[in-house]
């Protein structure tokens, strides 16, 4: 069912990771992603993987839930891995098959890249699992606020993101409902060739568009009724505040980076 797409859904438990200030969390995520990129050998990569598992453990988000977000991208990963295996021709040839050469370094690169992408997804999805959409967009608004200097309407961008995020579950629900209604009229969405399948989406897409436009204009009307006129002069009910947890998180990140640099230096024998 569509409900199973959990990517970007808040997982409501209490944990240290949930407590980190969303601004800090976003910055740390960016640093984390860079650190994952820095890893240039299997030992560093293994180390980073352990720290990520530790972070997931701290977040109290069940591993089953995290796995779902991995499932969503598994095909892309398999595809890129295959490309790596078939078209990387450096290293010792293991199997030769016409123009295709499978080499040991090709396989190693494929595995390396796959692990790296998985870690990217796990740590990024952890941000959305542990931060409510409202907090997330508040933080983005704050982090982007320097752009106001060059006349970017940061508030509107953040508001659009909030609304988009807010409507994802609504849209999913709507798709579920319409799909059920059309299935009840015998719509066949599971079989047939690609042409037939594309055609079978129309009975869902059209009602979905209509209802989206309806909710968009309802929402705009409701916002205007409550005197929304944009970001100017708006205050917040809940202020973001940094706490000691944020300092611990930053220290953790710093240690990870330090270990990373050391490992990269000493483990150059396992380089890809």
């Amino acid at each position: 069912m569509l409900k199973d797409i959990t990517l970007g859904q808040y997982y409501p438990v209490k944990s240290v990771i949930h407590r980190i200030d969303p601004r800090v969390k976003i910055l740390l995520l960016i640093i984390y992603l860079v650190t994952i990129f820095m890893a240039d050998n299997f030992i560093s990569l293994g180390f980073i993987m352990l720290t990520i598992l530790f972070t997931v453990f701290l977040s109290k988000v069940p591993f089953k839930v995290i796995l779902k977000s991995i499932k969503a991208i598994i095909f892309i990963v398999i595809f890129t891995s295959l490309i790596n295996i078939f078209f990387n021709s450096s290293g010792n040839v293991l199997i030769e098959f016409g123009i295709i050469k499978i080499t040991d370094s090709g396989i190693a690169t494929a595995i390396f890249v796959a692990i790296r992408v998985f870690m990217f997804v796990v740590i990024s999805s952890l941000l959305t699992y542990t931060t409510t959409p409202t907090n997330l967009t508040d933080a983005i608004e704050k982090l982007l606020s320097p752009l106001k200097v060059i006349r970017v309407d940061v508030h509107s961008v953040a508001m659009m993101m909030t609304i988009a995020l807010r409507f994802i579950p609504t849209l999913i629900e709507e798709v579920d409902k319409i799909t059920n209604a059309q299935k009840a009229r015998g719509a066949d969405m599971e079989s047939g060739g690609i042409g037939k399948r594309i055609k079978s989406v129309i009975p869902i897409l059209i009602p979905l568009f209509i209802s989206s436009f309806r909710s968009a204009s309802d929402l705009a009307f409701a916002m205007e009724c409550r005197c929304y006129t944009g970001g100017h002069g708006r205050t917040r009910m809940r202020q973001l505040r940094m706490t000691r947890t944020d300092i611990y998180a930053a220290i953790f990140m710093f240690v990870v980076i330090a270990c990373m640099i050391v490992l990269n230096h000493f483990a150059s024998f396992a380089k890809i």
Partner: peptide
């Protein structure tokens, strides 16, 4: 589903 027909709440949305 052809033998047991169901019409949902707010069916005009479909």
């Amino acid at each position: 589903r052809f033998k047991i027909g169901i019409c949902f709440q707010y069916p005009e949305h479909q």
